[in-house]
Amino acid sequence: MKPIIECRNLTKTFGPVKALDNISLSIPQGKIVGLLGPNASGKTTFIKILNELLTPTSGQVTIDGYEPGIETKKIVSYLPERTYLNDWMRVSDLINFFSDFYENFKPEKAYDMLKRLGIDSKDRLKTMSKGTKEKVQLVLVMSREARLYLLDEPIGGVDPAARDYILDTILSNYSEGSTIIISTHLISDIERILDEVVFLKQGRIEMAKSVDEIRESTGQSVDALFREVFRC
């Protein structure tokens, strides 16, 4: 099967800083991939390039054969690290908004998830706690029947119990055959739902392997290996 993401010699510089340094990577369809790395390793830059929020300095990346743009936005569902939603809106407004915007957005799916998470769709965003806002945002993102989900720190702001719930939501709602990329440094929480991990270090790929391969060859968890590779 054709890889969903293919990038070749991808480089992004901000002035003298190389945020991404000559990255070549292909990510197959139907996998859940962890994009792992310490702060400032290039995780968010990579995801932003995939969403055309940044353009590469050199090299290229394609999603399902297209460069990031209109065609890819139809099939990519993106959870940014920060919220961009208007906080005067009610959740039901947001659902209408997303329905207008994306052909593959399924409002019934969103309402169903909200119900299970105990969120009232009549509530306004600004009355919600940070964790609840994050949950709403994730619901919106996972309610699209996308080919590629790009989740930038989806569990950063929520408590450990809610994390499990969110991972469960991700597992039970992504459409079959689609690919999920999760960027995070909370590895132990998400390790068991990942197929593969990509370790980024100072803009370079330090390692790209499957979780069970790492466990088999090193006898330790990805979390433990991460601590070893990135020891300060």
């Binding site: 859940i32 991972l167 597992l171 039970s172 068991r192 739902i193 197929d195 069970d212």
Partner: peptide, 17 residues
């Protein structure tokens, strides 16, 4: 597979394997 994966909170491909 999907239900089992969800129950065990693991990746469906891992459960499949």
């Amino acid at each position: 597979v999907r239900d089992l994966a969800k129950e065990a909170s693991v990746n469906p491909n891992t459960m499949q394997r």
